[in-house]
Amino acid sequence: MVASLELRTSKDLKRIAAELRAMGDKQLKAEFSKELRSAAKPMVPAVRRAIRQIPSKRGYRADGLRGAMSRAVKLEVRMAGRDAGVRIRVDGRKMPDKARAVQSYMEGLKKPWRHPVYGNREVWVSQPAHPYFFRTVRPLGLASRVQVNKAMDRVARKIS
Rank of each mutant, 00 (worst) to 15 (best):
G67R: 02
L65K: 13
L36M: 12
G24T: 05
R66D: 01
E6V: 14
A84D: 01
Y60L: 08
S4P: 07
V2K: 15
R78F: 02
A40W: 03
I54P: 07
P55W: 09
A80I: 05
R21N: 11
R78Q: 11
I16Y: 05
A3W: 12
R58V: 09
K11G: 08
S56V: 06
I54T: 07
L13K: 12
R49E: 10
A72I: 00
R71A: 15
K57L: 09
A17I: 00
Y60G: 02
S70L: 03
S38W: 04
V73W: 04
L20P: 12
G81C: 09
R66H: 10
G67H: 06
M1V: 15
L28I: 00
P45I: 04
M23F: 08
K26T: 15
E76W: 03
R78W: 02
L75T: 00
R48G: 04
K74R: 15
R37F: 12
A80V: 10
E35Y: 07
A62I: 07
R15H: 08
A39M: 04
A22I: 05
K41A: 15
R21K: 13
L28Q: 08
K11S: 10
L13V: 02
Q53K: 13
R48D: 01
A30L: 11
A3N: 14
S10Y: 08
L28P: 01
M43N: 05
A30M: 09
A30H: 10
A80Y: 04
S33L: 03
T9P: 03
Q53A: 14
F32M: 09
M1R: 15
G64Y: 12
L5V: 11
D25Q: 07
S38P: 00
L28F: 01
A40G: 12
V44D: 02
A50N: 01
R21G: 10
K57R: 12
A72G: 08
K11W: 07
L7D: 06
L28G: 02
A50E: 04
D83T: 12
E76T: 14
R58Y: 12
E6W: 10
V77H: 02
K41N: 04
R15M: 03
R66M: 12
A50F: 05
V86S: 04
G85W: 00
G59E: 03
E35T: 10
A30Y: 08
L36N: 01
I51T: 07
